[in-house]
Nucleic acid binder design. Structure first.
Lengths: 199, 199
DNA sequence: ACATGTGAAGCGCTTCACAGCG
DNA sequence: CGCTGTGAAGCGCTTCACATGT
């Protein structure tokens, strides 16, 4: 399930001419084995042609379908530091159906500033904005100290999913999905492998 | 193994007064169950006291030990866009033993600029810098198009580990560890859960 | 003949349950 | 008595191998 986005990525990176792909090809592209790819794809239904492979366009469509990417989803970004700014400027999101519907920050000096056409608003406005603009996903790019507070605001405003970049474990109601991306943790894992290897 | 950094994080977030913690406590803090925590920690050796719990300081030290975090590691960041800048400015890395020893970008207009005391250097200088400054870890924060090229440069310069933020799967020799962090994939996974939930 | 789709085997990780120790 | 440490059971995911379909 976590691999479907990866397949989608690989399919998008394929040369334009290619209209068909075998599980073997897609596997090497994604760094996995072919049986796994077939299992994963059979989960979507039977969209392959035996003796040939998968139709690239059809497969792309089906994966998008399965991931619910064929629907636009409103997204707010909270915390417009360096990271928040980077995310707000990243055009890839819009292209993939994630529409930024609000940028928020606690710092009064940042309020009113604009990034890529979006105005930065104060945290007070967050709850109402989530409700009225129908935001489904929130990105927390605040410092660790404010993350839980922001998460509470978002949860009570009825957000459905949170992508948390702050290096803390936030607590939310069961109705909210959270994914955590922590740069420090990633580096630490790499550190572990380096450490292992040197023994 | 991927959870050790999480435990470390939780331990660091503990109130200063607390000198001991039970597996149960740490489990709720990390969002897991207590048996798992005990299994993970017993992997490090027997550092708990039965009937009491784990000594916080001792545990922190042992986890750092296991992750190889007690050694300083040189780190270079390639691609000083919004994301690269955000990473270069993040003080947390230095505190955790990851020392930035170089910033690199392909754009001539950025060369010579300074971020947090570090000068931005051209890609030509990357290979030599990695070798002479003994960089172990590289962060790729370039656009997707340049990621593979940069990875090749890094690999031939003898880098040990790469943290890749570019939305592509890069190919490197077996001697190099790669971890991939892809914002779009994360959002897509969230999208999947939203989609599931609405059925 | 070639590549998918899929039962079955294999494997590792998670969870349980309790013995052991302070 | 409380909490750790750990064998054993349980579970899901990965891999294999081959039957199936074009």
């Amino acid at each position: 399930v976590q691999r479907l986005p990866l397949y989608l990525q690989c399919l998008d990176d394929l040369p334009a001419g290619q209209s068909s792909i075998s599980s073997e090809e897609l596997a090497t592209e994604a760094g996995l084995n072919s049986a796994q790819v077939r299992k994963d794809l059979s989960f979507l239904g039977s969209y392959g042609v035996r003796g040939v492979g998968y139709d690239v366009d059809k497969l792309r469509f089906e994966i998008r379908q399965e991931l619910g990417l064929n629907k636009e989803r409103g997204m707010v970004i909270v915390g417009i530091g360096n990271l928040g700014r980077a995310l707000a400027n990243f055009r890839g999101f819009q292209e993939q159906g994630f529409q930024i519907v609000g940028l928020f920050d606690a710092d009064p000096r940042k309020i009113g500033g604009r990034i890529d056409g979006h105005e930065i608003e104060p945290l007070d406005a967050l709850g109402d904005a989530v409700r009225s603009r129908d935001a489904a996903i929130a990105v927390i790019a605040t410092p660790a100290e404010s993350a839980q507070e922001v998460a509470d605001l978002l949860a009570s405003a009825g957000i459905c999913a949170i992508l948390n970049f702050a290096p803390v474990v936030i607590r939310v109601p069961d109705a909210v999905d959270v994914r955590r991306v922590d740069f420090s943790s990633e580096l630490r894992v790499l550190s572990f492998y380096l450490h292992q290897r040197s023994m």
